[in-house]
Design a protein around this nucleic acid. Structure first.
Lengths: 203, 203, 203, 203
DNA sequence: GATGAATGAGCTTTCATTCAT
DNA sequence: AATGAATGAAAGCTCATTCAT
């Protein structure tokens, strides 16, 4: 009845703290992108990263915190892509649209991931507050817009409406593109959407 | 193996099949809207409906099937709201936008619910196929649009782009309105968005 | 929210009591043979028979009783096959062996079904008592054998041993044949096993 | 979604992985032998082992995996008992028979357990493949037999038939002995069956 | 830092059986 | 004789998190 130990101990590569942290983040991202946040378990991340459960909890406060950390990275990437060449209203607004579209087309799973978290934020307390960041964008966007309004460069629309006109089509397009159905010339789409966005809000 | 016979039968109000079915659906909807689909348990629905677990499974194949049944209702309501007064391109397209906005403002939790399911459909097999319905709308929309294109009433845009211009702002607006932050004159918003939608696609 | 009744009522063919009883038995047999007793649910039988749950319980005392009824039929078939042409010891013993093998090869799933119930009888109270019938055979077999012993036609072996020599190889062969692996000339196998059985016990 | 943190940690004796694993296996065996595999629940095993549900699933993939692990042990014990003193055909074949009988008489519940699993293997996917091991024995047995055939030491019988002649009576005898009815001199039975087995197949 | 055993409430789902109609 | 809604205990299993080592 005596039985041999079931699992050989896989000798684990020794990593420094930062490397371990990094490898966990990477693995978590891979899992979240592949199966979605909800369907991913800590165990999945453990297996993918080669870390132990305890290690994961040593570096992060849990699954939610892991997602939040990744979300910040994602958001940074998106922001970078949305930087305008000039401060001119048209440039700024077009860059918002094309930045989102281009970033999303480059990182389709990442877009889906952010979208999932945004949805969950409606009911999951650990993601409360994410909605603002994700949907309102850079926060400063609203105040930029109101400056443009004062300068009579754009229509005096309520910000939610303006936001919807500028980014709504882009989001929608990414959802379509991300769902694997439609396929359309990527570059052109971003421009078409930016054209429309600017046309919709310009004074 | 032999399941123990149910010992005490606490007589419960006897409903007809349809009544019970209805009460379960209603309770499920209430729970889904209140706590979200994911956070809702069968037990919640059981308590809210007064049915037994077995009864719920007698009428529905599970939580997913329950959601699907409700989704169809939701979709029907939205479709109804989007009916245009005439077949004129402008009327049709404006109705798409205002229909979605008005329906969503009238049923904010229901909108959130559909949005949650759409998000989950990316990874949850039980909701595969939902995405098409929810995001592409009535299916016939694409062909309507191409008829308008042929009639030179609207721009010859790829359908995903046109879809994004027509409904993207509306969706976005509803997400903002639904997240409990912004508040804007409801009626006016629908019109503003419809104006922009039509302006974006008209020939 | 009002929804149409979910299921069209399939008009059910009106059967007489006996016909209904028969159709239930038949359906139950089909299910038991196909998926095994344990894996078969009353619901499976309901669907296969076209009867309603209530009907099934009207005619039978439950799943166990259904199995018992079928078991008796099975046993009758097996007994019939085992009838010897004469009362001569050799004929009787050979017929026991060939009868079992031939019956089992003709009704492989039925053999498996009886084997499953026999196994369950060790722990399931509803089948207590089945073991005797199934494993000891016709009950009278033991006394037949002791008559043969007295007539010095066969060895004076303890009945369990004799039983094992006469039927054990046949059972084993059927299990092999039934498991879908081996294939051997059916007729010949029965004879070989009968030869050996007789040789093993003859005086 | 976010699982509630385990509130109160009732400290339990800390065992090494192997100890806990062992205790679970032992408890599972006890339950399976006492009530049968089917009638045993995870909860039974939990109570018997003192482990928590989670611990059981930490070490084993479920009830089926637990049974498989135990089955391997059982099989090893049986194999050990069947080892022949020499390579002579008669010794090998007699050892097969007596080994099975003796092992089964020493471990009657274990025999019953293996028999139950064999039966279930016909329909339960988790036990597919068990049948071969359990019913065909050591795999090498067939090739041993064919060597004996070539050496003209035994009859040139199809393997299923030979297998049935050698082990069928033994299995049958154990089923009788295990069902708690008959009682016969154990030692003598093994020999009688071995005598017959050898007589049936010797050239 | 690192490990991985341990926790245990809670999940979805099953199903033999009952009984009001 | 027939219906099928209702029952509800119990099943197998999950998994975020904790913490002794």
């Amino acid at each position: 009845m005596a039985r041999a130990a079931a699992k050989k101990v896989k000798p684990r590569k020794r990593l420094t703290g930062d490397e371990r942290r990094e490898s966990i983040l990477e693995a978590a991202l891979g899992c979240f992108l592949e199966k979605g946040y909800i369907a991913t378990t800590i165990n999945d991340i453990r297996e993918a990263s080669g870390a132990t459960t305890g290690s994961i909890y040593h570096f992060f406060d849990g699954k939610g915190a892991l997602a939040m950390a990744l979300l910040e990275d994602a958001f940074a990437g998106w922001s970078g892509e949305s930087a305008a060449a000039s401060e001119a209203p048209e440039a700024v607004i077009r860059a918002s649209t094309t930045g989102l579209v281009n970033w999303g087309l480059k990182n389709p799973e990442l877009f889906r991931f952010t979208d999932e978290i945004r949805t969950l934020s409606a009911t999951a307390p650990e993601f409360a507050g994410v909605a603002d960041t994700l949907i309102e964008g850079q926060g400063s966007a609203a105040s930029s817009y109101s400056k443009f309004v004062k300068a009579k460069k754009v229509k005096d629309l309520p910000w939610p409406v303006a936001h919807s006109l500028i980014l709504g089509p882009a989001y929608n397009y990414l959802r379509l593109a991300t769902t694997g159905r439609s396929r359309v010339a990527a570059k052109r789409a971003a421009e078409m959407l930016a054209d429309a966005a600017w046309a919709s809000v310009k004074a």
